[in-house]
Amino acid sequence: MTVTNIQSGTNVHEVADGIYRINTPVVIEGAGGFSFNQYLIVDDKPLLFHTGPRRMFPLVREAVASVLPVESLRYIALSHVEADECGSLNEWLGSAPQSSPLCGTVAAMVSIGDLADRAPRALADGEAISLGNHVVRWLDAPHLPHAWECGFLMEERTSTLLCGDLFTQGGSQLPPVTESDILGPSEAFRHEMDYFSHTKNARLQLEKLASTNPATLACMHGSAWRGDGTALLRALADALSE
């Protein structure tokens, strides 16, 4: 793990081949320790998943620059429209002149086509694009855990699911990647601060994600996780059904 900003504690760690977790620990009033993660895929067409909040842009930019030239980014991707997902989207588009927003068709239609300074590259459910050595596939997941436009990216070469707000863990001093239980801590966090929409289609959508057989779950808050992602996603479906 490389610390790129001593004051904030922002750090970078490679969680899968060519995929880097950028992490900034924070203290949120009433919630204690927390963290914001972005994921950088290094390739011919580099991709950043999640931008971080707008005020965190200098920290995340500094971290990305420690891995590759910021201006080389080609895609600024997001799961859904929320400050920690795309708050600094236009700052990134300004820093990387060849980049474009990458999102699902619903997000492009209802928000990003208007909010972003450049037109988005909208992906249909199941559509894949090549970054070079890596291939990312978009998976629609409306209202899982929230937002109509929600979806995730599966990086197929490393079997890494960029899973956004799923398995959110509280705390600010967690390891970059773990093989320990994250379902228990994430369920405890969900019961304390309920951020799920409780869509009736949650099990079907989680089964779709499970069918991709992920080996790494790239969570936006807390540790990334390595193991049998199919089993863990099905365990989450069971927990949500209780």
Score class of each variant (00 low, 15 high):
130 S>V: 12
190 R>E: 11
39 Y>W: 02
101 P>D: 10
139 L>C: 09
8 S>I: 07
111 S>Y: 06
91 E>M: 12
141 A>N: 12
150 C>E: 12
120 P>N: 05
145 P>Q: 00
220 M>P: 05
222 G>N: 08
119 A>C: 13
61 R>W: 09
132 G>E: 11
43 D>P: 09
91 E>Q: 13
62 E>K: 14
137 R>M: 03
89 L>T: 03
120 P>W: 14
233 L>G: 01
222 G>D: 06
62 E>Q: 15
51 T>A: 06
22 I>C: 04
182 I>K: 00
213 N>I: 08
139 L>R: 00
235 A>W: 01
41 I>L: 14
109 M>R: 11
59 L>I: 07
241 S>V: 13
209 L>G: 00
49 F>M: 05
106 V>C: 01
5 N>G: 07
2 T>K: 08
64 V>H: 04
188 A>L: 14
171 G>L: 06
125 D>G: 09
154 M>F: 13
230 T>W: 03
93 L>E: 14
28 I>L: 12
11 N>E: 14
216 T>D: 07
229 G>E: 14
110 V>G: 01
29 E>D: 15
136 V>C: 04
116 A>Q: 04
99 S>G: 09
120 P>I: 01
97 P>K: 12
201 N>A: 08
205 Q>D: 02
164 G>R: 04
238 D>E: 15
73 L>D: 07
201 N>Y: 06
214 P>I: 03
35 S>L: 04
194 D>H: 11
145 P>I: 00
20 Y>W: 12
124 A>R: 14
240 L>K: 08
49 F>Q: 03
119 A>W: 11
144 L>K: 00
187 E>F: 04
91 E>G: 05
86 C>S: 07
105 T>F: 11
47 L>D: 01
98 Q>I: 09
45 K>L: 10
232 L>I: 03
80 H>P: 09
188 A>Q: 03
206 L>F: 04
149 E>R: 03
158 T>E: 09
67 V>R: 06
229 G>A: 13
153 L>N: 08
102 L>G: 04
177 V>R: 10
169 Q>E: 13
96 A>T: 05
86 C>W: 03
124 A>I: 12
90 N>I: 13
4 T>K: 00
195 Y>H: 11
222 G>P: 10
2 T>V: 05
39 Y>G: 04
68 L>H: 10
9 G>T: 07
65 A>D: 09
184 G>D: 13
70 V>S: 02
1 M>K: 04
230 T>E: 14
49 F>E: 01
127 E>S: 04
13 H>E: 12
170 G>L: 09
88 S>Y: 07
52 G>F: 11
241 S>Y: 12
22 I>S: 02
222 G>H: 02
84 D>A: 06
49 F>I: 00
145 P>N: 00
128 A>F: 11
54 R>S: 14
205 Q>N: 05
164 G>A: 10
150 C>A: 13
149 E>S: 06
164 G>Q: 06
20 Y>A: 01
187 E>V: 10
119 A>L: 15
21 R>W: 03
90 N>T: 08
211 S>V: 03
233 L>S: 06
125 D>F: 08
17 D>P: 15
88 S>N: 01
185 P>W: 08
83 A>S: 14
108 A>P: 03
55 R>E: 15
96 A>W: 08
35 S>A: 13
32 G>Q: 05
76 I>D: 04
47 L>Q: 02
152 F>T: 01
214 P>A: 06
